[in-house]
Design a protein around this nucleic acid. Sequence first.
DNA 1: ACAAACCTTTTCACTCAGCGAAAAGAAAGC
DNA 2: GCTTTCTTTTCGCTGAGTGAAAAGGTTTGT
Lengths: 266, 266
Amino acid sequence: MAGTDAASPGKSVTERAFAVLMSFDMGHRQMTLSQISRRSGLPVATTFRLLNHLEAIAAVQRDPAGRYAIGPKIWELGILAPTHDVIGMGTRPLLLRLATKSGMMVRVFVCNGERALCVEEVLANGASAPGSGPGMTLPLIESAAGHVLMGGMTTAARSALPLTRTAFARMEEGIAAATERGWAQRSDAAGHIEYAVPIRAEGRPPMALSLSTAPTVSAATRPGVSIETMIPEMRGVARSLAAILAPAHRTGSDPLATTRRESGDE
Amino acid sequence: MAGTDAASPGKSVTERAFAVLMSFDMGHRQMTLSQISRRSGLPVATTFRLLNHLEAIAAVQRDPAGRYAIGPKIWELGILAPTHDVIGMGTRPLLLRLATKSGMMVRVFVCNGERALCVEEVLANGASAPGSGPGMTLPLIESAAGHVLMGGMTTAARSALPLTRTAFARMEEGIAAATERGWAQRSDAAGHIEYAVPIRAEGRPPMALSLSTAPTVSAATRPGVSIETMIPEMRGVARSLAAILAPAHRTGSDPLATTRRESGDE
DNA sequence: ACAAACCTTTTCACTCAGCGAAAAGAAAGC
DNA sequence: GCTTTCTTTTCGCTGAGTGAAAAGGTTTGT
């Protein structure tokens, strides 16, 4: 299921158009019309019309076989997202050093709806883990990175998450504690451990730096690698990342300070 | 001006919503409401409503100052575009080798409307040229890469470009010649030279591999570097790229052969 | 060869979601 | 304090969106 039925009244056209786009995911990078219709929950005719509109502006693309895929225009827009700055701005060496030192998987996450979105992933040995990598997402509630990210949200925003009253209370407590001490920890059923610390770059949505054993179960027994030694390491890297990312955020708007009327707007 | 006035009747809502999104560019990564309204040519109230819809689905994001930016959702969708595969699939070493050998700037382009969109850029010394890099675009008609890309289009598609009758005829001739010999060349007023060859990966929209002197004017006099030696080099790299990119395209659809009913569509 | 099943594309009458001028409310600048 | 510019809300009109249904293609199975 890709979203909760985007058909039926009360839904804006924009929502529907994006329901079409969001029916794409890593396992469905190119699809036929009817596939998209089924996954988005929209009637075929509607899907067809929307896809036509989207194709006209290169938001989607058709391959020789007639199947649809996300178009170059979306990609072009995507790299303008603040999210994208984590990649290719000299952050990789930093992350790689941390990966090597810890023997663990290093990731950077941002908040995307009710999920933590992985923006960058670095393993000590290069190559990403299968089924993982940038673009992968994790539920906010079920990850250390998620808990760190939620610490940067308002309580109001958090209460929008679909949780029972008690689960919410428990979560709030956990987040408060994590925010207090500056890091979060989580281990899943399989015994994999994840640590996360916040990355707070000026004027930029909060991000999280995450260190996890999965899926390469090597680490944790490595000499000198423990939670006591790693958290400070992570904090240092997070601070460096924040420093790298902060100034670049101003690009294209006010090079000086507050809101000043731009000259050539149109 | 970002696009030719998206207001006024005859325009679909989708078109308008994207007019809002497309008013962002490298020089305008975060904008205020009225800035977006002006640049998209849409009334403020309309822009406001559209931005609200877009924000609800994380297609746009607001920073602490209330300014809008492209949201993480668009980024997430963008990396699903076939376009994105050129990055981070082991293609970099190939391109870097070519950059080093030639001393020139190496780029990969795809076609995006009437412009060639740069997907990857590699210089011999790492770091991109200022004002350049992935996401940058060039008019199809004014670049060697563009001519190569147009060679993969139908004449009908090409005739959609805004050109005079004679300019079109001249262009058609140039494209035919370039397609014939398998590469294109162009030099601009400043004396910078660009070569381009097609990258034809199976089942994937055509791409172009481009080699240019700008903006690092070093090369061209380097021993052993000439058009005669570089075109074959480029052809080789293009073929390797096509080989790397072709099989991955099937990801998420039919792992075997033709159209087969997918099991868990929804 | 024929039929069944599935896909894409077109049509069309209905109506609901989008529209945008205008007014009200906030902030910044003078 | 007054002006200018920006954001947000309201509201009656209407045209763009809608989706069932039918037509036209293509593939699969027998």
